[in-house]
Design a protein around this nucleic acid. Structure first.
Lengths: 247, 247
DNA sequence: GAGTGGTCTAGACCACCCT
DNA sequence: GGGTGGTCTAGACCACTCC
């Protein structure tokens, strides 16, 4: 076995060796890597040390372990999404409702978009792409709306539903950050606690002064990235992203 | 000890209990939490299980352990940064050069901004704020520039240096994603492997057709977030972020 | 020297999957 | 039933800090 670096601890050298094998294609995407017992024998370390290395690789999104089956190299497929559009997401994506409740916004991470303190309609759903969950969305809307509209929220993009009822988004405030996965997100994506996720907090002001939409989009880091372009030539410090963009 | 959930494994219940104590203020920011030995006794589990819980909390950015000293609750201080400005970063920040080399862009994560394949001037530096490293910046610039300009790159923002020499940024392409920390970033920020980071890949087209700037900004997730606002009223699908913004 | 966290080990049990 | 990964344990050694 070739040791890439000295002064690395055992589980680190094992981790990096496996990582480089994945990069080199020795362990191919979607196919299993040797069991902890075999790796333990090959590297001459205890199974616990191997498990530690594999756990770190899981946390970094390189592999996935399934109890009873084995450990597999993760296929990488990241979606690059333009930021400067009204729709929260894709047209081709399928939406699966999770829950519709009435809640106050308690998540401290939402503080940066200054949400109201009263209870609002809370719609949670997952958006799927390519037969895998892509983002987990939590949307908060003012409750004083018709009940039939509320029904539609669970299965469609909130913006689309509002638009259909003549309510237009006039301003969007977005905060993008990274955060370790916790709670619901772990279960939905099957990722371990602390797994890096990309988060998009949003606040949408609409043409109806009574209707403001708040929410969070959350996706595992290896599934989604955001993109935005600025053109500084068309005015002093103004941004005109990519001109027109009608579907 | 109160157990928040059943059907959680031991290290999970320990982890969540400690997490809630931090949230409640029982364990205050910047102050030490009990040692693994004490926690092990209190919870009635082995020290290894406690260590496992603490390691997960470290990976989530809640605590910091220093060998020989103890484990401390991390103070949270995140900087919210507007995206729609030319300068890569703050004015009040201090810059510490790391290295100036000549390299090809090899990082596969840069592929999304389509960098050139030839070798370029590569400037690495850290930007500090509030006596702590805030972001790690890697900038690539075309090499055909005066040597004295190259000298300035290490200690100043690239955009500022170019501007001083009459070269203006006309277009900016940005890709934002999250990624687990690896390599240099771990050392600089003192974070464990796999720690979630926020990344900003950029490509800047300048008024000089020979000069295009590529680069990556990388920051621990708990140090930085990005912000951007869109106003859809001023034209069909055009974005005019927050009007004027001169310092 | 006492206490700390980090690493590594051997060994055990479980739930799960597959044949 | 044999193999897998996940969990938990007891015990050891090290490097480090602080007194």
């Amino acid at each position: 076995m070739s040791q890439s670096q000295s002064s690395l601890s055992l589980h680190e050298t094992v981790r990096e060796e496996i990582r480089s094998r994945i990069a080199a294609g020795t362990y191919a995407p979607e196919s299993p890597i040797p069991s902890t017992a075999m790796l333990s024998e090959e590297f001459g370390v205890s199974t616990i040390t191997v498990k530690r290395a594999l756990r770190d690789l899981q946390a970094a999104g390189a592999i996935v372990s399934t109890p009873g089956k084995g450990t597999y190299v993760k296929r990488q497929r990241r979606l690059l999404r333009q930021l400067d559009v009204k729709q929260p997401f894709l047209d081709e994506a399928s939406i699966r409702p999770v829950s519709v409740t009435r809640e106050k916004i308690l998540d401290p991470t939402m503080a940066s978009i200054e949400p109201p303190t009263h209870a609002m309609l809370c719609v949670r759903k997952t958006i799927w792409s390519d037969d895998a969950p892509l983002v987990y969305d939590t949307t908060y809307v003012s409750t004083d709306m018709g009940d039939q509209i509320v029904e539609e929220f669970a299965g469609h993009f909130v913006v689309d539903v509002l638009e259909k009822h003549g309510i237009h988004v006039v301003k969007t405030h977005i905060v993008i950050d990274a955060a370790p996965a916790a709670g619901m997100v772990e279960e939905i994506f099957g990722i371990p606690n602390g797994y890096p996720t990309l988060r998009r907090l949003y606040k949408m002001v609409t043409s109806d002064p009574n209707v403001t939409v708040y929410g969070v989009l959350q996706a595992p880091f290896d599934r989604l990235a955001c993109k935005i372009d600025f053109d500084w030539t068309s005015g002093k410090n103004s941004a005109l992203p990519r001109g027109r963009r009608r579907k």
